[in-house]
Design a protein around this nucleic acid. Structure first.
Lengths: 167, 167
DNA sequence: CTCAGTTGCTTTCATCATGAAAGCGATATA
DNA sequence: TATATCGCTTTCATGATGAAAGCAACTGAG
């Protein structure tokens, strides 16, 4: 039974998940950020079945997140490298790491982000670039943007001048 | 064939994904952040099969991300509300939204975060709380933390004093 | 030279996940 | 009374999944 696609949704979160939301995909990207490039490296790091790894790598290539680069002719051998688009995924990984360290690490932080020069541990926080205010501030709200379709507008303006049922 | 658990991994990202990494789970959390609480609301919003929704809701409850609250006795009826742990997931959602708007929205931003008072659109960025430096700065690096086990240490210090093979 | 090991996949197979659809019990409304 | 709605549960056929075997090509040791 094929998984239902999120691609019919306009929500940007849904669109992101359409490309990275399968089991294993985000962990593969994590490993790419760690510098792994080869099939056997991913396989060893993740303990993933080869057929699943092949499948996920191909989907990430299809999504424009990985490039496949031949590093050997005989036999043909490829490595997998992050695209610029994938590099912009880093904040998601950082946010997952912070959340995991806070809530699912009773033994303490096993992975941290540090300042190379001072050795100090970083404490990541999401802020608004212009005002410097943390995004957790109640002053911020999520709403329909300029390109929103009827469904998204209905979602975020349910009591607006035109009552729309989400569909 | 049961999906392979990430719970044997110490990586905080893997631990986060163990709890939210199934198809639909993050979108359910998105909807909870939007104020949806009832079964039929999620069902309508997502277009998800009822048996899958039940399953995912139960897994999110099990993971301590949702609480089930009875709002009616006859028949027994429940709504689903975010726990504090789940509220801390917001930065992940924001990061996914920003990434999706940038890379997968040729028509422009359909969902945005705005300042309620000024109406100005927020531009989220991940910074280090202490120094204010963006996490994308090359000065930052990811490394093994104080609670790291041998596998994680091998992952992040492959050329350290003790060469360890990741396992 | 042969043989064994390694790499990077592909193929096979049995089991579980998945979504569509029907079903159920309880309630509310006409 | 009948019909609609809600919140699930059950059924069923199809695709995903992981374990394991397989394959071709290479490398290195004896």
């Amino acid at each position: 039974m094929q998984r239902k696609s999120f691609d019919t949704m306009q929500c940007p979160i849904a669109r992101s998940l359409e490309r990275v939301g399968e089991w294993w995909s985000i962990l593969i990207l994590r490993d790419c950020f760690q510098g792994l490039t080869r099939f056997d490296e991913f396989e060893k790091s993740l303990g993933i079945a080869p057929n699943m790894l092949t499948r996920r790598l191909n989907n990430l290539i299809e999504a424009g997140l990985l490039d496949r680069r031949q590093y050997r002719e005989r036999p043909p051998r490829f490595e997998y490298v992050l695209t610029d688009r994938a590099r912009d995924f880093q904040p998601v990984l950082v946010a997952l790491l912070v959340w995991g360290n806070k809530h699912f690490a009773p033994e303490g932080a096993s992975v941290v982000i540090v300042n190379r020069e001072t050795g100090e541990r970083a404490d990541p926080i999401l802020v608004d670039r212009a005002s410097g205010l943390p995004l957790s501030d109640p002053i911020f709200t999520t709403t329909a943007g300029p390109a929103a379709d009827a469904e998204i507008r209905g979602r975020y303006c349910p009591t607006g001048p035109e009552e729309m049922s989400p569909d």
